[in-house]
């Protein structure tokens, strides 16, 4: 019973992480029709900026998280301007931007290696101590992640459904010309969606930076998992993406319990291929 509950909690932590990552991917996809390969690298940059502000500058972990979020958001705006916007009119926009954002990943990862060096870094937790959840002790910081993820996701959802600006992002994603004809500045909407998504990645990285080590390659594993999430859940809606994220988190945690760390990647891989063969549109996906 204890192991079961521990597995549930660990699945919840993983699910929160994947949900934060995948929702950013989903926002950019639904607004711009671009898949941002640099999303994992943006998360990594957020973690490094948070570390610099918190540890190197000494401003403390809260300032670090804020700086990591804003810094990644700003870099997101630059990325959108330099490697996405020039290709809007391109016939192969989807493929071309996949390639340019992949190139940006290399630039960010190697750039981080040059700036911050190879030494492993870690952030102190935002909150100290432990919390008991279903009789399992987890660090208060992980508990914070558990609470923060749904709060952020619901805020993002409310933003796109209820606010004028959020609605305009959805409108642009569904029909650029019609959105322009009611006065929405389409390029500005694109930049905003990209910035929000990047800031979300930066925030995730800054939060993850006190659970895992901060390295230039730290973004690639969460990105891969977020990709599996969107394969399962589709990219179309925030709700199904978040649902799939928690599902994958639980599946991964239970696989670790049943088949061990050694075989988990293999089992996850097999599962993905099987699901795709049986249901090419994913579990929740309607496309």
């Amino acid at each position: 019973m204890d192991t079961l509950l521990a597995t549930l909690v660990s699945g919840l932590v993983l699910g929160s992480l994947y949900a934060l990552m995948a929702s950013g991917l989903s926002l950019v996809w639904t607004t711009l029709g671009v898949f941002n390969f640099a999303h994992g690298a943006l998360m990594m940059v957020g973690a490094f900026i948070a570390w610099t502000v918190s540890e190197a500058v000494g401003a403390g972990p809260v300032a670090g998280v804020v700086a990591g979020t804003l810094g990644a958001g700003l870099i997101g705006i630059v990325i959108e301007r330099l490697v996405i916007r020039p290709f809007y009119a391109s016939r192969n926009m989807l493929l071309v931007t996949a390639m340019t954002t992949l190139a940006v990943t290399i630039i960010l990862e190697r750039g981080a290696q040059m700036i911050w060096g190879p030494r492993l870094k870690q952030l102190p937790p935002l909150v100290d101590g432990e919390i008991r959840l279903f009789g399992n002790a987890i660090s208060a910081h992980e508990a914070l992640l558990l609470v923060a993820a749904p709060v952020i996701l619901i805020a993002l959802w409310r933003f796109t459904v209820s606010s004028k600006i959020g609605r305009s992002l959805r409108a642009v994603g569904q029909n650029q010309d019609s959105a322009a004809l009611i006065g929405v500045d389409v390029p500005k909407a694109f930049a905003l969606a990209f910035a929000i998504s990047a800031a979300l990645a930066g925030l995730t990285g800054a939060l993850l930076g006190s659970i895992r080590f901060i390295t230039p390659a730290m973004g690639s594993e969460p990105l891969t998992k977020a990709m599996i999430v969107v394969i399962f859940g589709g990219l179309g809606s925030l709700g199904s993406t978040a649902g799939a994220a928690y599902l994958i988190g639980f599946i991964e945690a239970f696989l670790v319990l049943w088949v061990g760390l050694y075989w988990t990647p293999f089992a996850l891989f097999l599962l993905m291929i099987l699901v795709l063969l049986l249901r090419p549109n994913g579990i929740f996906g309607k496309r």
Partner: peptide
């Protein structure tokens, strides 16, 4: 386009081109 809308010059496109999921 936003500046033109702001001026009050409005273009209603053919009706099949709206926001399907809104």
């Amino acid at each position: 386009p936003p500046a033109i809308v702001e001026a009050g010059l409005i273009h209603a496109p053919q009706g099949n081109t709206l926001f399907g999921n809104m």
